[in-house]
Design a protein around this nucleic acid. Structure first.
Lengths: 102, 102
DNA sequence: AAAATATATTGACAATTTTCTATATGATGC
DNA sequence: GCATCATATAGAAAATTGTCAATATATTTT
């Protein structure tokens, strides 16, 4: 995975309001208006955060009439975990050996 | 874990240059000057990124003479993984039930 | 002690992100 | 159709972050 996509995934988790939104979604699907009651931002600001979360594929929206029900995307979360794993597991046989001073 | 700390941990992973730095450290400990050769930023900028990575405890620095050898902190990485897990696992028995329209 | 090397800090500027107000779109109900 | 409700978009302001040049600190070398 490229650095740009990796950054986008973790950007989902690096704003305090988005973290609160994700926490609210842990207990199940919620519509934007319900989230708006809990998160103290204006409606357009919430909409902006939901877009970032959806673009990162951490959250998915299900449209039903005039509502959008948001929920945590199990698939997206697995991708984030896998991404974190790949980024942080030591690569013993990598091309770059340890740093030796010249 | 509070939202502030959670955000700080994931901020480590949401800048493309920091992601490159972490990738370089996968193959083992490297001194800042070595990292500087690979990442195309000035020395103060690299220093700034290393501070963010160390504050988030994803990376640790080991001082040896005038060098600082940076490496991925296994402990910090485990904390990040645990944090991601806690944040994203569904909470079936949580206090907030599913969203029901009024 | 002076020069050289590695890294950190300061302060300014640029880029990006978060937030808001105002307005638009799209769906439902009268 | 018109009013209402839920969400999105546009555009601007505020806050935060990333970057650099200049300078400081700490260590080693001569």
């Amino acid at each position: 995975m490229d650095e740009r996509r990796t950054a986008a995934i973790f950007k989902a988790f690096c704003d305090e309001n988005r973290i609160r939104i994700i926490k609210l979604l842990r207990s199940g699907e919620k519509c934007a208006c319900k989230l708006l009651e809990e998160i103290h931002v204006t409606q357009p600001t919430l909409s902006h955060h939901m877009k970032i979360l959806c673009d990162a594929e951490i959250v998915v929206g299900r449209k039903e009439g005039k509502w959008i029900h948001y929920s945590i995307s199990e698939k997206g979360v697995e991708q984030a975990k896998e991404c974190l794993r790949q980024l942080t597991t030591l690569d013993i046989n990598g091309k770059n050996g340890p740093c030796r001073e010249k």
